[in-house]
Design a protein around this nucleic acid. Structure first.
Lengths: 201, 201
DNA sequence: GTCTATAACGAGATAGAC
DNA sequence: GTCTATCTCGTTATAGAC
């Protein structure tokens, strides 16, 4: 017998999670209803509640991102910039659906906001340690803001050119930007005249 | 007498608008209720409906941004970058509450999304015309994404360092970033005048 | 009579009883 | 696993104040 009760239940749970991931990332927390998730998963609304306790519980399950999976951030400023850029490129290559569920709701849902805040804070702290400048914390925040803006533009707002561009082209354009923010020397600039670039401080 | 009936009404309308602006920008569209706006404005929920037709109508009134007020975008890539940076710095100096109402809801409310999309598209088109490169459209989108990310980080997500930093410091750090994205030569000037264009080299 | 406040309606949500 | 009570929302009718 292929489908025991527990197996059946596990499958239903998976269908619900998958449906929730899709709807939360497409519509955000508020506009996603338990009913819609249930319909999408061919299950009963009550079941969703039973399995995940509440709408909040379902969202938590969906939007949990493991910070530990992120690459560690260290080395010279230029290396930090490269690491971050590589991390961003990853997310530009394959759409990070679970993360999008979180991003989509971060401006309007308190828990999503907290979750994102915790994530960027952690990342920020690691970067701040790696960047030697006195204004390292601000530089780290700006790096985070640029990454956030890029992901929002591509996946959530769907800016046309940004949505269609290959990941490599985006990261190539962003590279000098990251280098500058990290405080390293901008390397592959399409500049006609490489001027001196000492940060005023 | 200071408060005639129409004057009284005008004041109530203003209180409602002000309350709505605050609540929409703090909580976003979905989590802002007509009732809460009315309470905040010391008015009646029915009045809000009567004055503004519907919740959508109220939001439209609050979130209307005049694109014409934006500075025109032209000149060399370096000048384009400077213009954009100046525009961003403006918004970093004084918190643009009405725009924040729109930004806060852009990821979860369809009309807010459309409004923002129209805005960035218009800006994008003007920039694309000004930037000579073949990948101008993508560069324009990225410039927009960086500005968006910066505003979100400072006002909506409230990244700590970014929230507290003076506008000049932020724009100084962002300047080479903008220059690189616009395709001009990175330069280390931090101008205080929007019109100021330092002669490079 | 116009403008404002109170009350009620129906839709749709979550969550807990069966 | 299903059904239904309760809550809150946006909105509309109704009664009262100027």
């Amino acid at each position: 017998m292929a489908t025991s009760r527990t197996e059946q239940r596990r499958q239903t749970e998976q269908r619900i999670l998958s449906a929730a991931r899709r709807l939360f990332s497409e519509r955000g927390y508020e506009r996603t209803t338990i009913r819609a998730v249930a319909t999408e998963a061919a299950a009963d609304p009550g079941l969703v509640m039973r399995y995940f306790e509440s709408k909040e519980g379902l969202f938590s399950q969906v939007a949990r991102i493991d910070m530990d999976a992120e690459a560690s951030i260290d080395g010279s400023p230029a290396e930090v910039a490269d690491t971050l850029l590589a991390s961003l490129r990853d997310k530009l290559v394959t759409e990070p659906e679970a993360a999008l569920a979180l991003l989509r709701s971060m401006l309007t849902h308190p828990e999503a906001s907290r979750e994102v805040h915790a994530y960027v804070s952690a990342q920020q702290r690691r970067m701040t340690e790696a960047l030697p400048q006195d204004n390292a914390a601000l530089r780290a925040d700006l790096l985070g803001a640029v990454m956030l803006g890029t992901l929002i533009g591509r996946y959530l707002i769907r800016m046309e050119a940004l949505q269609d561009a290959p990941a490599e082209e985006i990261s190539a354009l962003l590279s000098p930007c990251f280098q500058a923010l990290a405080g390293g020397a901008p390397k592959d600039v399409h500049a006609t005249e490489p001027d001196e670039q000492a940060p005023a401080g």
